[in-house]
């Protein structure tokens, strides 16, 4: 299988944050994803003999299962653990030693960790490619790949879009990564919708202020801006990120997207959500054709298949 001219070669690289790949490399990955979606059966043995290690120091359903499903659909095998308690970390082993050991057994490692920057430390000590599958409230670059491929498939591209990000923008790592990735595309406008306590971190807002190619605004009320949006990215207020339960209870249901609010939205506005959802999107919205979050979850598996192939240097064309 030959790679088309101009497509990216990502063999041996790590994906720790959304800007680790160039725009061209991302385009190559999206082209690979669309090829896989068109004929998944062609790739059912592409990773035969390869092993993926999934190191989940924090619970996950979607990300871990979608990585495992992606590797199994490529004909590869998976080893790993789903919580820190079932790893040697429970015995006091350092992250550096864990990843050095895993490098001896696997061809590629996926890591989720509650500490921010842990995947970078893992990559510094690994001899195999490392993928960040979420580090605390910091970044989640493979969810961003999922979000971007969905936006591309549903809206045709990113330039000039007005994107509302709503909910927990402070601890919402998927939001931080998505903003970072979309900031490279001309004419994007971000509308940041959150209560004051859950505003985007200083480093995210500072990057936006310094970026001349994009615009951003902040508001507290979803209903004031929903009519202007091309895409609405809803997020869950995450109980696990709060040190204080009272604050969580006060803020958890601050935004609820329902059929009434959707009436004010554009007919082609799409609703995205990294999932899991709690109360922030009413179940009645699921039947609205503009709600694409379950398609998004499906796309996540395919884009992770493309990512695994690219980092292992296996061509798709």
């Amino acid at each position: 299988m030959r790679r088309e001219k101009g497509e990216a070669v990502l063999k041996g690289k790590c994906l720790l944050e959304p800007l680790d790949f160039s725009v061209e490399e991302m385009d190559g990955l999206f082209a690979d994803t669309e090829r896989i979606i068109a004929s998944p059966e062609k790739y059912s043995e592409a990773c035969k003999g390869k092993i993926l290690a999934t190191l989940f120091f924090e619970p996950s359903t979607r990300t871990r299962l979608s990585f495992e499903a992606a590797m199994l659909r490529l004909g590869g095998q998976v080893i790993g653990f789903a919580e820190a308690a079932s790893s040697s970390v429970a015995k006091g082993e350092s992250l550096a030693d864990t990843i050095r050991t895993v490098s001896c057994y696997a061809d590629l490692a996926v890591i989720r960790h509650p500490k921010e920057g842990a995947p970078k430390v893992a990559a510094m000590n690994a001899s195999i490619p490392v993928i960040n599958a979420g580090d605390g409230g910091h970044q989640h670059p493979t969810q961003t790949l999922t979000d971007l491929i969905t936006l591309k498939m549903e809206r045709g591209g990113f330039e000039g879009l007005t994107i509302g990000l709503c909910g927990d923008l402070r601890f919402g790592r998927t939001v931080h990564s998505l903003i970072k990735a979309l900031s490279r595309y001309e004419g994007v406008t971000f509308v940041l919708i959150s209560p004051e306590e859950l505003m985007a971190p200083e480093y995210v807002r500072r990057d936006l202020e310094m970026n001349g190619a994009v615009r951003f605004e902040e508001t507290r009320r979803l209903q004031d801006v929903i009519h202007r949006l091309d895409a609405l990215y809803m997020t869950r207020v995450q109980r696990e990120r709060f040190f204080n339960e009272e604050d969580y209870i006060r803020l958890k249901d601050i935004y609820i997207l329902d059929a009434e609010k959707m009436k004010a939205a554009k007919p082609d506005m799409i609703v995205l959500h990294p999932l899991p959802r709690v109360n922030e999107i009413a179940a009645e919205v699921d039947d609205d054709p503009r709600a694409v979050y379950f398609k998004q979850a499906r796309n996540g598996m395919f884009v992770r298949m493309a990512l695994i192939l690219a980092l292992l240097g296996i061509e798709t064309a």
Binding site: S94, L95, A96, H113, K115, A118, D135
Partner: peptide, 13 residues
């Protein structure tokens, strides 16, 4: 100073 930073728990970094 971020208590969630990996440097707060992983030695030798």
């Amino acid at each position: 100073k971020n208590p969630r930073c990996v440097t707060s728990s992983e030695g030798g970094v």
